[in-house]
Amino acid sequence: MSKTILAVDDSGSLRQMLTFSLKAAGYGVIEAVDGRDGLAKAKQQTVDLVLTDQNMPGMDGLSLIRALRGMKKYQKVPILMLTTESDDAIKAEGRAAGATGWLVKPFDPDRLTEVVQQLIG
């Protein structure tokens, strides 16, 4: 059974590119348009990995990570931040919130799937 990834980003084109790249690598993808939508979808079903943007209206990526890490079923699930931001302070904040890794946009599809494979097979 293929692993499922939750892709959270307010940019429609970015979600499209993520879904295209991850499905081509054999993963199932659930899309969410912001942190709140991501949290609701993560509650509805269990996913194997979460990929989230940082800057989103409503609920940002760091808040989403904190909320997910507060749920028992997401304490060990890998969560990757995929964002344009790359300064050390926000990365440290992401790490403290419980992010598993930090990817800076734009992403390279091959590199992304390599990282995902490394984390969830």
Partner: peptide, 17 residues
């Protein structure tokens, strides 16, 4: 080439920011 296009198409996200 598809991977290069996928990377390039993400410019919309950055332009939007």
């Amino acid at each position: 080439q598809v991977a290069a296009a996928v990377t390039s198409l993400q410019f919309q996200d950055m332009a939007s920011q």
